[in-house]
Design a protein around this nucleic acid. Structure first.
Lengths: 149, 149
DNA sequence: TTAATTCGTAATCACAATAGCTACAGTTAG
DNA sequence: CTAACTGTAGCTATTGTGATTACGAATTAA
């Protein structure tokens, strides 16, 4: 079960949504963001680092510094955020089968391909929501998925 | 990012595929399965436990005991396996936002809904492959995903 | 019956990932 | 200069995963 305890994606979405709601109020400090998300301010900064490098947010040190969205909330899809924080990690976990076992090699290859397809499916689903959608809680209705109840 | 280091799904698919390939040869022991998957025999048994309870495999103790598929490999979808091992865990990790923060509450609700939709998307993708498919390495071509490259 | 084999499971250990926390250097506004 | 921030580097606590050992129960062969 992939289930990670990794909450960075959730924290990132939370922070971005918060920033979207404060768009007119100037920069927001890590401390304020950490109070809302209930995580450590240092952790907030660590999560926001990759998003800044990707141009989604910007930060300023100094007295009235803090964080701001660098682009409209409606332009930031959750898929973008997920990919930035996901890196190249696999969605389903793989294992290291015995390389001498032909079954193992075949299974490994199949699973790698399937993992890629699953990652695409996840991204496609997340592509359907933006930070703006989360802010307005207007999460677009789930598309009926073929072959599934 | 979901990425767990959990390899139970991969191990389960591996073992099921191995059993499918040995369908005529009688029960296969945990030791033999552990040699192919490169994981501990105890771990193999632990992973296989839920699959046995779900009626996918059966096991027998004793001298010529071991594991066998309890149904045709073509009837076992990877989605079934994933759901059995996934339990109720979230795909994307959530966090515990400050309950006093209205933004936090809204984000939490949105993320929970989105997580459900993503889980459905993953399951739908995995519904497209069976253990038989993995055995023959004939992984069905990826369906073009709407709204995604 | 006895011995060998194999599952079932508990207990313990090692390792890695996550995130909390402290500390401190660098920046900026006033 | 000073206060308020970010940016990082450590260190620690907690947790999840899986290896390992151990032992009991079930089954088969002799």
């Amino acid at each position: 079960m992939p289930s990670s305890k990794n909450t960075q994606f959730a924290v990132a979405v939370h922070v971005l949504t918060y920033l979207a709601g404060q768009a007119e109020g100037g920069p927001v400090s890590s401390d304020e963001l950490s109070a809302s998300t209930n995580v450590n301010p240092v952790h907030v900064r660590r999560v926001l680092g990759p998003l800044r490098e990707a141009g989604l947010v910007c930060s300023r040190p100094g007295v009235h510094g803090g964080w701001e969205l660098a682009r409209p909330a409606g332009d930031i899809t959750l898929a973008r955020v997920w990919r930035l924080l996901q890196g190249d990690d696999q969605v389903l976990g793989l294992h290291g089968p015995n390389p001498d076992c032909p079954v193992g090699r075949g299974v490994q290859r199949s699973l790698t391909a399937i993992d890629g397809a699953v990652a695409e499916a996840v991204a496609a689903e997340l592509e359907r929501s933006t930070v703006q959608d989360v802010l307005t809680r207007e999460v677009r209705g789930a598309r009926p998925v073929p072959g599934q109840a």
